[in-house]
Amino acid sequence: MSDGSAPGGWLAGFNAMPAGAAEAELRACCASSAFAARVAAGRPYAGVAALLDAAGAAVSGLEWPEVLQALAAHPRIGERARGPGREAAWSRREQAGAAGADARVLAELAAGNRAYEERFGHVYLVCATGLTAGEMLERLRARLGNDEDAERRVVREELAKITEIRLRRLAEETAA
Rank of each mutant, 00 (worst) to 15 (best):
M1L: 12
G4Q: 09
P7W: 01
L11K: 13
F14C: 04
N15P: 01
N15I: 00
N15S: 07
M17V: 01
A19D: 14
A22L: 05
E23D: 07
R27D: 07
R27L: 02
S32M: 05
S32P: 00
A34D: 14
A36Y: 01
A37K: 11
G42N: 09
Y45S: 12
Y45D: 14
G47T: 13
G47N: 14
A49S: 13
L51M: 14
L52P: 06
A55W: 05
G56F: 06
A58F: 08
A58N: 08
A58L: 04
V59N: 03
S60C: 11
G61V: 02
P65E: 01
P65H: 02
A72W: 03
A73Q: 11
A73C: 11
R76Y: 06
R76T: 02
I77R: 04
G78A: 09
G78H: 09
E79C: 07
A81K: 11
R82A: 15
G83E: 01
G85V: 00
G85F: 07
G85N: 14
R86Q: 06
A88N: 10
A88F: 05
W90K: 01
W90A: 15
S91I: 11
R93E: 13
E94I: 06
G97S: 10
G97I: 11
A99K: 02
G100A: 04
A101K: 10
D102M: 07
A103S: 11
R104H: 01
A107H: 03
A107Y: 06
E108Q: 15
E108W: 03
A111G: 08
G112C: 09
N113A: 09
R114M: 10
E117W: 04
E117P: 00
E117A: 13
E118G: 12
E118Y: 00
F120L: 07
V123F: 08
Y124K: 15
Y124D: 05
G130F: 03
G134C: 12
E135W: 03
L137Y: 10
L137F: 00
R139P: 00
R139C: 00
R141N: 13
L144Q: 06
G145D: 15
D147F: 07
D149Y: 07
D149T: 14
R153C: 11
V155A: 06
R156Y: 03
E158L: 09
L159V: 01
A160R: 14
K161G: 08
T163Q: 03
T163N: 05
I165W: 07
I165A: 11
R166Q: 12
L167V: 09
R168P: 08
A171C: 15
E172F: 06
E173V: 04
T174G: 11
T174C: 14
A175P: 15
A175G: 15
A175R: 13
A175Q: 12
